[in-house]
């Protein structure tokens, strides 16, 4: 897992899967997933290393300067 190796470049930035991404107050995990167009269903989300259960994506607010890992598993033949 990548948590911690790449740090947010500035205030109001978060790192999502090692990419600098803009942050805004109240942004939830679901918002980030939508913004990144992560439509794959088998995701595992960690904010600063802490696992976020699937049914909390809508309510989990991402703090500023967080490191968010949205791990895609694999599927298909």
């Amino acid at each position: 897992m990548q948590a911690g190796t790449i740090v947010p470049a500035a205030d109001s930035m978060i790192v999502v899967n090692s990419e600098q991404t803009e942050w805004s107050r109240g942004k939830t995990v679901s918002d980030v997933i939508k913004e990144k167009n992560y439509i794959f269903p088998l995701l595992i989300v960690r904010i600063n290393g802490k696992l976020i259960p699937r049914d909390e994506y809508d309510s989990s607010v991402v703090p500023d300067e967080a490191t968010v890992d949205i791990i895609h598993l694999m599927s298909g033949g």
């Binding site: 897992m1 990548q2 190796t5 899967n17 090692s18 990419e19 992560y38 794959f40 890992d69 949205i70 791990i71 895609h72 598993l73 694999m74 298909g76």
Partner: peptide
Amino acid sequence: WLIFMDMVNKQIP
């Protein structure tokens, strides 16, 4: 099939 691990998750840099 490692594309997500590599390209999207950046898990294997």
